[in-house]
Write a protein that binds this DNA or RNA. Sequence first.
RNA 1: GCGCCCGUAGCUCAGCUGGAUAGAGCAUUUGGCUUCGAACCAAAGGGUCGGGAGUUCGAAUCUCUCCGGGCGCGCCA
Length: 644
Amino acid sequence: MHTIKSRLRARIGEILAGAYPIAPNDIDFIIPPQAKMGDLALTLPFGLAKRQKLNPRAVAQEMMSRLGTLPGVARMEVAGAGYINLFLDKDAFFAARLAAAGTTALRPAERKVIVEHTNINPNKAAHIGHLRNTCLGDTLVRCLRFQGETVEAQNYIDDTGVQVVDVVFGFLEIEKKSLADLDGIERFDFYCWDLYARTAAMLEKEPAAQARKTEILKAVEHGQGEAGAMAAYVSRRILRAHLATMKRIGAAYDVLPCESSILDLRFWDKAFERLKQEGAITLAGEGPNAGCWVMRLEDEEDKEKIIVRSSGTVTYVGKDIAYQMWKFGLLERDFYYEPFAEDEGRTIWMSTAAPNERGIHFGGGSRVYNVIDTRQSYLQKVVVQGLRALHFEAQAAKSTHFSYEMVALSPRSMKELGATIAAGDEDKAFHEVSGRKGLGVKADDLLDKLEANAYAEVAKRNPDLPEETKRRTSRDIARGALRYFMLKFTRNALIIFDFAEALSFEGETGPYLQYTAVRLNSIFRKLEEREGRTLAAVGEAGREHPPAMSTLPAQEQADAWGLLTLSSQLDDEVLRSIEALEFSHLAKYAFSLCQACNGYYHKYPVLNEEDAGLKAVRLQVLYSARDVLVRALDLMGIPVPERM
RNA sequence: GCGCCCGUAGCUCAGCUGGAUAGAGCAUUUGGCUUCGAACCAAAGGGUCGGGAGUUCGAAUCUCUCCGGGCGCGCCA
């Protein structure tokens, strides 16, 4: 649909250019609410009628007669208050769709796109909130790559931050453990989850301990002593656990830039210099911020943001401005890199301050997406203002904060977790996840639960499958269920997490989509078993001898056409999802496509159809739908098992 | 106080940048497995789109206002 829309847009623009005052952007299509109203509709007459104070219907009539015949369009009609409805040439469209199987008409727009996501503090196990971040970020990466963009997936590691320091403090001061003791701890990320909560509670109760924590923080920032070594150990080991967790949902990264490298390579000094040079920050002489370097904020006259404290240390925002500059290649510096892990043949690189001769480079994107929850909107805005203050207007315009709402816990989930509800919070509709309080659903626990439920279903339905296949299938189903669950909500929707809802495998869920794909695959597998025709052979037959749809009986033609046009909208949906950063669009689209597939093959048998003509059409319609569905699922990171 | 977000069916949510009769899933009721897989399909009931005003050919969608809920606004990260 994307292809024919672009073609029609260009052609209509050409024809009407002399007759009406229209810009190319005015020509837009909507999909009519009912199939009998056509395949595409022009709303152009409404806009023109308004400007020229004419009757929209009359404008539509005149416009339609000017348009004459359009390529690929069988007929047009004026309808409703002034729509021009287009009915496509079904056979030509069918043939074009079959020829285009497995391809996209989308084209890249950027030199290089950087997507930063996940970014979990490496001091405890990942939880459901982190899963939402990664699902959104990884889906964005997949969609951009589908569009043909060169994409770098970055996962920023704050390995010297206070959260890591808290855990180091816990080991050293509360548990009196040495670095050597840590190797013996199993499920290290879960262990630290509890320790972090205990430490946070203890530090709150005993302010006197703050001094010791500050000491540890300094040592960690300079990589000195046992604390420094322990911070490196904790952050690396937790990071490996995070990567393993995210691998379970199919997320991968190209590079892991570390806070420690930023400190060691003094990225901030360079940025500080520039900020001062450009007058973007000034030294406050008096008032409450005396002695601090501050940045004035747009919109808020009376406010200034502290970038460098009076003690000379840089704040979080300041570091983030420097880091954002690096992402755009504006810092004139880069990290060194060394391999951190291998993932299915691809190396995941980690930044280091230690020079090497590898010649590997990252960063320097022409567009940057930061996937961070909405609570950081204000700070993200300040970071972009920092770029603007340095006169990097173009980069500021291409810095996108991909914000999304948090995942909270329903009262029922709280009960299932055995969590106690704080006094005064009894009436709340939801409870915020908090790593500091150790309150939340750990990602691996949820995935384990999903897998266990999936395993029970698989074992019930396919008892004869080998054990390893059952396990693998359960993992695929768990991943599908989770990824769809995280994508089906719009990003501004607060997800109030409920186990029953998240663990459902029926209705609008990942497993429903997977089941549809499995059944479609099954039809083609049986076709090969019974008739020796492979999927590839069906595809080739469709490309070379596309069957005609126009000869079908009316009802069947309508149903086949409905499924075909729906399955032709992947490009449009991907583009729309990227532009709006709203992958619920893609999710809903894939779900609708599955509903249409299930309805279609339920109504029209393929393998047992004796009429060769009917069979050929049905086979090709399903071939096309299968092709699109499998790709849509892949974009969402949802795998398709062989059986389920 | 200022900024941002949310309010749509009993519940959980969509609603394609202002379009034609507001849609899904769950739950409820009913029907369908001897056929390419029932994690499915077919059908039914269920709505003052938080309230009010405005903009116009046309509003769930845009503007204003009020009500209810959430999140931000630190010499923390």
